[in-house]
Write a protein that binds this DNA or RNA. Structure first.
Lengths: 159, 159
DNA sequence: CGGATATTGTCTACGTGGAAACAGAATTGC
DNA sequence: GCAATTCTGTTTCCACGTAGACAATATCCG
Protein backbone atom coordinates (compact mmCIF):
# COMPACT_ATOMS: atom_id res chain seq x y z
CA UNK A 1 0.00 0.00 0.00
CA UNK A 2 1.46 3.31 -1.05
CA UNK A 3 1.02 6.57 0.74
CA UNK A 4 -2.09 8.65 0.51
CA UNK A 5 -1.08 10.41 -2.68
CA UNK A 6 -2.96 8.15 -5.02
CA UNK A 7 -6.40 9.39 -4.17
CA UNK A 8 -8.97 8.96 -6.82
CA UNK A 9 -8.11 5.39 -7.51
CA UNK A 10 -10.50 3.82 -5.04
CA UNK A 11 -13.96 4.53 -3.79
CA UNK A 12 -13.05 5.65 -0.32
CA UNK A 13 -10.24 7.97 -1.32
CA UNK A 14 -12.11 10.62 -3.25
CA UNK A 15 -11.73 14.18 -2.01
CA UNK A 16 -14.97 16.06 -1.69
CA UNK A 17 -13.27 19.38 -1.14
CA UNK A 18 -15.70 22.25 -0.51
CA UNK A 19 -18.59 19.97 -1.40
CA UNK A 20 -18.05 18.16 1.88
CA UNK A 21 -19.48 21.32 3.47
CA UNK A 22 -22.42 21.54 1.11
CA UNK A 23 -25.60 20.89 3.02
CA UNK A 24 -27.42 20.21 -0.21
CA UNK A 25 -25.07 17.44 -1.29
CA UNK A 26 -24.93 15.96 2.19
CA UNK A 27 -28.71 15.85 2.28
CA UNK A 28 -28.83 14.30 -1.15
CA UNK A 29 -26.30 11.59 -0.34
CA UNK A 30 -27.95 10.88 2.99
CA UNK A 31 -31.33 10.61 1.36
CA UNK A 32 -29.99 8.17 -1.21
CA UNK A 33 -28.33 6.13 1.52
CA UNK A 34 -31.48 6.00 3.59
CA UNK A 35 -33.66 5.33 0.59
CA UNK A 36 -31.73 2.26 -0.46
CA UNK A 37 -32.13 0.72 2.97
CA UNK A 38 -35.76 1.76 3.07
CA UNK A 39 -36.53 0.18 -0.26
CA UNK A 40 -34.97 -3.18 0.52
CA UNK A 41 -36.78 -3.26 3.87
CA UNK A 42 -40.25 -2.74 2.42
CA UNK A 43 -40.11 -4.14 -1.09
CA UNK A 44 -41.88 -7.32 -0.07
CA UNK A 45 -45.07 -5.35 0.57
CA UNK A 46 -45.28 -4.66 -3.16
CA UNK A 47 -45.81 -0.97 -2.57
CA UNK A 48 -43.63 1.67 -4.17
CA UNK A 49 -41.62 3.83 -1.75
CA UNK A 50 -43.45 6.97 -2.76
CA UNK A 51 -46.78 5.30 -2.21
CA UNK A 52 -45.94 4.24 1.33
CA UNK A 53 -45.75 7.78 2.60
CA UNK A 54 -49.00 8.58 0.83
CA UNK A 55 -50.80 5.68 2.50
CA UNK A 56 -49.44 6.63 5.90
CA UNK A 57 -50.37 10.25 5.45
CA UNK A 58 -53.91 9.41 4.37
CA UNK A 59 -54.21 7.16 7.39
CA UNK A 60 -53.27 10.09 9.60
CA UNK A 61 -55.41 12.56 7.66
CA UNK A 62 -58.54 10.83 6.32
CA UNK A 63 -60.28 12.86 3.66
CA UNK A 64 -57.21 14.94 2.86
CA UNK A 65 -57.28 16.51 -0.57
CA UNK A 66 -54.80 15.57 -3.24
CA UNK A 67 -53.29 19.00 -3.55
CA UNK A 68 -52.87 19.42 0.19
CA UNK A 69 -51.19 16.04 0.45
CA UNK A 70 -48.99 16.84 -2.52
CA UNK A 71 -47.68 20.04 -1.01
CA UNK A 72 -47.19 18.32 2.36
CA UNK A 73 -45.01 15.69 0.71
CA UNK A 74 -43.42 18.33 -1.54
CA UNK A 75 -44.40 16.66 -4.77
CA UNK A 76 -46.34 18.13 -7.67
CA UNK A 77 -50.06 17.75 -8.15
CA UNK A 78 -49.49 16.09 -11.51
CA UNK A 79 -47.50 13.33 -9.91
CA UNK A 80 -49.89 13.00 -7.00
CA UNK A 81 -52.72 12.53 -9.48
CA UNK A 82 -50.94 9.58 -11.07
CA UNK A 83 -50.08 7.89 -7.79
CA UNK A 84 -53.55 8.47 -6.37
CA UNK A 85 -55.05 6.92 -9.46
CA UNK A 86 -52.72 3.94 -9.17
CA UNK A 87 -53.52 3.46 -5.49
CA UNK A 88 -57.20 3.67 -6.31
CA UNK A 89 -56.81 1.08 -9.06
CA UNK A 90 -54.97 -1.11 -6.57
CA UNK A 91 -57.95 -0.85 -4.24
CA UNK A 92 -55.94 0.71 -1.43
CA UNK A 93 -57.55 4.15 -1.36
CA UNK A 94 -60.88 5.66 -2.21
CA UNK A 95 -61.30 8.98 -3.97
CA UNK A 96 -64.43 11.04 -3.59
CA UNK A 97 -65.52 14.48 -4.70
CA UNK A 98 -66.72 16.59 -1.77
CA UNK A 99 -70.05 18.36 -2.27
CA UNK A 100 -68.73 21.78 -1.28
CA UNK A 101 -66.01 21.81 -3.97
CA UNK A 102 -66.53 19.64 -6.95
CA UNK A 103 -63.04 20.29 -8.27
CA UNK A 104 -61.42 18.67 -5.26
CA UNK A 105 -60.67 15.04 -4.59
CA UNK A 106 -60.70 13.64 -1.07
CA UNK A 107 -58.62 10.60 -0.22
CA UNK A 108 -59.38 7.86 2.27
CA UNK A 109 -58.02 4.40 2.89
CA UNK A 110 -60.15 1.43 1.96
CA UNK A 111 -60.31 -1.53 4.31
CA UNK A 112 -57.63 -3.14 2.18
CA UNK A 113 -55.56 0.02 2.40
CA UNK A 114 -55.88 0.06 6.18
CA UNK A 115 -54.75 -3.56 6.25
CA UNK A 116 -51.76 -2.83 4.04
CA UNK A 117 -50.78 0.16 6.14
CA UNK A 118 -51.04 -1.90 9.31
CA UNK A 119 -48.90 -4.62 7.74
CA UNK A 120 -46.18 -2.16 6.80
CA UNK A 121 -46.00 -0.40 10.15
CA UNK A 122 -43.76 -2.94 11.92
CA UNK A 123 -41.31 -2.97 9.04
CA UNK A 124 -41.31 0.80 8.99
CA UNK A 125 -40.55 0.96 12.68
CA UNK A 126 -37.88 -1.70 12.37
CA UNK A 127 -36.31 0.25 9.55
CA UNK A 128 -36.33 3.40 11.66
CA UNK A 129 -34.68 1.54 14.50
CA UNK A 130 -31.89 0.30 12.22
CA UNK A 131 -31.47 3.34 10.04
CA UNK A 132 -28.95 5.13 12.24
CA UNK A 133 -26.05 4.68 9.86
CA UNK A 134 -22.90 5.61 11.73
CA UNK A 135 -24.84 7.53 14.37
CA UNK A 136 -25.70 6.70 17.91
CA UNK A 137 -29.41 6.69 18.76
CA UNK A 138 -28.96 9.99 20.54
CA UNK A 139 -27.29 11.54 17.52
CA UNK A 140 -30.05 10.21 15.31
CA UNK A 141 -32.61 11.87 17.55
CA UNK A 142 -30.69 15.14 17.31
CA UNK A 143 -30.53 14.75 13.55
CA UNK A 144 -34.28 14.28 13.33
CA UNK A 145 -34.89 17.32 15.49
CA UNK A 146 -32.59 19.45 13.37
CA UNK A 147 -34.20 18.27 10.15
CA UNK A 148 -37.66 19.06 11.48
CA UNK A 149 -36.49 22.52 12.44
CA UNK A 150 -34.80 22.95 9.08
CA UNK A 151 -38.14 22.14 7.47
CA UNK A 152 -40.07 24.25 9.98
CA UNK A 153 -42.10 21.14 10.55
CA UNK A 154 -42.26 21.35 14.32
CA UNK A 155 -45.77 22.57 14.78
CA UNK A 156 -47.76 19.53 15.73
CA UNK A 157 -51.12 21.21 15.87
CA UNK A 158 -53.95 19.23 17.36
CA UNK A 159 -57.54 19.72 16.36
CA UNK B 1 -50.78 32.19 -1.23
CA UNK B 2 -48.32 30.08 0.62
CA UNK B 3 -44.80 31.25 0.21
CA UNK B 4 -43.28 29.61 3.23
CA UNK B 5 -43.14 26.04 4.28
CA UNK B 6 -46.64 25.83 5.52
CA UNK B 7 -47.83 22.37 4.67
CA UNK B 8 -51.03 23.06 6.54
CA UNK B 9 -52.31 25.61 4.07
CA UNK B 10 -55.85 25.01 5.19
CA UNK B 11 -57.69 25.42 8.43
CA UNK B 12 -56.58 22.03 9.62
CA UNK B 13 -52.84 21.43 9.60
CA UNK B 14 -51.63 18.23 8.03
CA UNK B 15 -50.59 15.70 10.63
CA UNK B 16 -47.49 13.71 9.86
CA UNK B 17 -48.09 11.27 12.68
CA UNK B 18 -45.39 8.62 13.01
CA UNK B 19 -43.86 9.78 9.73
CA UNK B 20 -42.66 12.90 11.54
CA UNK B 21 -40.16 10.56 13.20
CA UNK B 22 -39.11 8.90 9.98
CA UNK B 23 -35.53 9.82 9.23
CA UNK B 24 -35.99 8.71 5.64
CA UNK B 25 -38.91 11.04 5.00
CA UNK B 26 -37.25 13.90 6.85
CA UNK B 27 -34.15 13.47 4.72
CA UNK B 28 -36.22 13.30 1.58
CA UNK B 29 -38.21 16.43 2.38
CA UNK B 30 -35.08 18.28 3.44
CA UNK B 31 -33.32 17.30 0.27
CA UNK B 32 -36.22 18.50 -1.85
CA UNK B 33 -36.34 21.76 0.07
CA UNK B 34 -32.62 22.34 -0.32
CA UNK B 35 -32.69 21.27 -3.95
CA UNK B 36 -35.35 23.77 -4.92
CA UNK B 37 -33.36 26.60 -3.42
CA UNK B 38 -30.19 25.26 -4.98
CA UNK B 39 -31.71 25.07 -8.42
CA UNK B 40 -33.11 28.59 -8.44
CA UNK B 41 -29.79 29.94 -7.17
CA UNK B 42 -27.73 28.35 -9.95
CA UNK B 43 -30.06 28.05 -12.91
CA UNK B 44 -28.56 31.07 -14.63
CA UNK B 45 -25.32 29.16 -15.16
CA UNK B 46 -27.16 26.84 -17.53
CA UNK B 47 -25.80 23.76 -15.83
CA UNK B 48 -28.03 21.00 -14.57
CA UNK B 49 -27.97 20.44 -10.80
CA UNK B 50 -26.53 16.98 -11.12
CA UNK B 51 -23.77 18.24 -13.36
CA UNK B 52 -22.63 20.89 -10.91
CA UNK B 53 -21.48 18.37 -8.34
CA UNK B 54 -19.71 16.43 -11.07
CA UNK B 55 -17.80 19.50 -12.21
CA UNK B 56 -16.82 20.38 -8.67
CA UNK B 57 -15.72 16.85 -7.93
CA UNK B 58 -13.60 16.66 -11.07
CA UNK B 59 -12.02 19.95 -10.12
CA UNK B 60 -11.05 18.46 -6.77
CA UNK B 61 -9.99 15.14 -8.28
CA UNK B 62 -8.52 15.68 -11.74
CA UNK B 63 -8.26 12.48 -13.71
CA UNK B 64 -10.84 10.67 -11.62
CA UNK B 65 -12.46 7.75 -13.36
CA UNK B 66 -16.12 7.70 -14.19
CA UNK B 67 -16.96 4.70 -12.04
CA UNK B 68 -15.13 6.05 -9.02
CA UNK B 69 -16.90 9.38 -9.33
CA UNK B 70 -20.21 7.62 -9.79
CA UNK B 71 -19.89 5.64 -6.59
CA UNK B 72 -18.69 8.72 -4.70
CA UNK B 73 -21.82 10.59 -5.74
CA UNK B 74 -23.93 7.46 -5.22
CA UNK B 75 -25.22 7.31 -8.75
CA UNK B 76 -24.96 4.45 -11.23
CA UNK B 77 -22.30 4.13 -13.88
CA UNK B 78 -24.97 4.15 -16.57
CA UNK B 79 -26.15 7.56 -15.54
CA UNK B 80 -22.65 8.88 -15.07
CA UNK B 81 -21.81 7.81 -18.61
CA UNK B 82 -24.66 9.91 -19.98
CA UNK B 83 -23.82 13.00 -17.97
CA UNK B 84 -20.11 12.72 -18.74
CA UNK B 85 -20.91 12.48 -22.41
CA UNK B 86 -23.14 15.54 -22.16
CA UNK B 87 -20.49 17.53 -20.29
CA UNK B 88 -17.93 16.53 -22.89
CA UNK B 89 -20.24 17.62 -25.69
CA UNK B 90 -20.70 20.92 -23.86
CA UNK B 91 -16.94 21.35 -23.86
CA UNK B 92 -16.70 21.49 -20.07
CA UNK B 93 -14.78 18.29 -19.44
CA UNK B 94 -12.30 16.16 -21.29
CA UNK B 95 -12.39 12.39 -21.30
CA UNK B 96 -9.30 10.35 -21.97
CA UNK B 97 -8.43 6.69 -21.88
CA UNK B 98 -5.44 6.01 -19.63
CA UNK B 99 -2.70 3.86 -21.18
CA UNK B 100 -2.57 1.42 -18.27
CA UNK B 101 -6.26 0.50 -18.56
CA UNK B 102 -7.94 1.05 -21.85
CA UNK B 103 -11.36 0.27 -20.46
CA UNK B 104 -11.31 3.22 -18.11
CA UNK B 105 -12.20 6.84 -18.76
CA UNK B 106 -10.43 9.64 -16.92
CA UNK B 107 -12.16 12.96 -16.45
CA UNK B 108 -10.61 16.42 -16.34
CA UNK B 109 -11.95 19.92 -16.66
CA UNK B 110 -11.25 21.85 -19.83
CA UNK B 111 -10.29 25.51 -19.59
CA UNK B 112 -13.92 26.31 -20.24
CA UNK B 113 -14.95 23.89 -17.51
CA UNK B 114 -12.54 25.50 -15.06
CA UNK B 115 -14.02 28.87 -15.93
CA UNK B 116 -17.55 27.63 -15.45
CA UNK B 117 -16.66 26.05 -12.12
CA UNK B 118 -15.01 29.26 -10.98
CA UNK B 119 -18.07 31.23 -12.01
CA UNK B 120 -20.38 29.00 -10.05
CA UNK B 121 -18.33 28.94 -6.86
CA UNK B 122 -19.54 32.30 -5.44
CA UNK B 123 -23.16 31.36 -6.06
CA UNK B 124 -22.56 28.00 -4.45
CA UNK B 125 -21.06 29.59 -1.38
CA UNK B 126 -23.81 32.17 -1.21
CA UNK B 127 -26.34 29.39 -1.43
CA UNK B 128 -24.62 27.53 1.38
CA UNK B 129 -24.65 30.67 3.50
CA UNK B 130 -28.37 31.16 3.00
CA UNK B 131 -29.47 27.55 3.05
CA UNK B 132 -29.93 27.30 6.80
CA UNK B 133 -33.70 27.09 6.60
CA UNK B 134 -35.02 27.53 10.10
CA UNK B 135 -31.67 26.69 11.67
CA UNK B 136 -29.07 28.87 13.28
CA UNK B 137 -25.59 28.71 11.74
CA UNK B 138 -24.44 26.64 14.72
CA UNK B 139 -27.28 24.18 14.23
CA UNK B 140 -26.50 23.99 10.53
CA UNK B 141 -22.91 23.13 11.37
CA UNK B 142 -24.11 20.41 13.73
CA UNK B 143 -26.43 19.12 11.04
CA UNK B 144 -23.59 18.89 8.54
CA UNK B 145 -21.42 17.07 11.04
CA UNK B 146 -24.17 14.58 11.81
CA UNK B 147 -24.86 13.97 8.14
CA UNK B 148 -21.19 13.35 7.44
CA UNK B 149 -21.09 10.89 10.30
CA UNK B 150 -24.31 9.27 9.11
CA UNK B 151 -22.65 8.79 5.73
CA UNK B 152 -19.38 7.69 7.34
CA UNK B 153 -17.76 10.38 5.24
CA UNK B 154 -15.40 11.62 7.94
CA UNK B 155 -13.82 8.33 8.79
CA UNK B 156 -11.69 6.93 6.01
CA UNK B 157 -12.96 3.49 5.26
CA UNK B 158 -10.51 0.71 4.71
CA UNK B 159 -11.12 -2.74 3.41
C1' DC C 1 -76.16 38.29 -13.36
C1' DG C 2 -71.90 37.77 -16.23
C1' DG C 3 -67.17 38.12 -17.33
C1' DA C 4 -62.45 37.83 -15.47
C1' DT C 5 -59.37 35.44 -12.45
C1' DA C 6 -57.85 31.71 -9.40
C1' DT C 7 -57.84 27.06 -8.01
C1' DT C 8 -58.02 21.84 -8.57
C1' DG C 9 -57.08 17.89 -10.81
C1' DT C 10 -55.54 15.89 -15.15
C1' DC C 11 -53.00 15.17 -19.47
C1' DT C 12 -48.83 15.25 -22.48
C1' DA C 13 -43.99 15.96 -23.22
C1' DC C 14 -39.75 15.86 -21.20
C1' DG C 15 -35.76 15.25 -17.93
C1' DT C 16 -33.63 12.40 -14.38
C1' DG C 17 -32.03 8.08 -12.66
C1' DG C 18 -31.84 2.93 -12.42
C1' DA C 19 -31.88 -2.35 -14.10
C1' DA C 20 -30.33 -5.36 -17.14
C1' DA C 21 -27.86 -6.64 -21.18
C1' DC C 22 -23.92 -5.74 -23.89
C1' DA C 23 -18.94 -5.04 -25.94
C1' DG C 24 -14.28 -4.34 -25.06
C1' DA C 25 -10.36 -4.85 -22.07
C1' DA C 26 -7.94 -6.75 -18.06
C1' DT C 27 -7.20 -10.64 -15.05
C1' DT C 28 -7.13 -15.40 -13.66
C1' DG C 29 -6.83 -20.39 -14.30
C1' DC C 30 -5.72 -24.23 -17.15
C1' DG D 1 -1.37 -19.42 -25.27
C1' DC D 2 -6.37 -19.73 -24.57
C1' DA D 3 -10.84 -20.00 -22.27
C1' DA D 4 -13.38 -18.19 -18.35
C1' DT D 5 -14.23 -14.56 -15.34
C1' DT D 6 -14.25 -9.86 -13.88
C1' DC D 7 -14.16 -5.03 -14.49
C1' DT D 8 -15.23 -0.60 -17.15
C1' DG D 9 -18.11 2.05 -19.78
C1' DT D 10 -22.08 2.04 -22.78
C1' DT D 11 -26.72 1.17 -24.65
C1' DT D 12 -31.66 0.29 -24.30
C1' DC D 13 -35.72 0.20 -21.87
C1' DC D 14 -38.39 1.53 -18.04
C1' DA D 15 -39.96 3.96 -13.51
C1' DC D 16 -40.16 8.23 -11.14
C1' DG D 17 -41.07 13.12 -11.04
C1' DT D 18 -41.63 17.76 -13.10
C1' DA D 19 -43.14 21.68 -16.38
C1' DG D 20 -46.59 23.47 -18.82
C1' DA D 21 -51.03 23.47 -20.93
C1' DC D 22 -55.74 22.20 -20.34
C1' DA D 23 -60.87 21.69 -18.76
C1' DA D 24 -63.86 22.16 -15.04
C1' DT D 25 -65.16 24.47 -10.99
C1' DA D 26 -65.05 28.23 -7.59
C1' DT D 27 -64.48 32.99 -6.44
C1' DC D 28 -64.19 37.92 -7.17
C1' DC D 29 -65.71 42.17 -9.06
C1' DG D 30 -68.04 45.23 -12.40
Amino acid sequence: MADMLDRGTHDGAVRFGPLAESLGLLLRLSQLHSFHDFYTALERHHVRPGEISILMMIRENPGIRQGVLASALMIKRAHMAKMARRLEDAGLIERSVPPDDRRAMELRLTAQGELRAAEMTPDLEAHEARNFGGLTPEEAATLRTLLRKYLALDAPKED
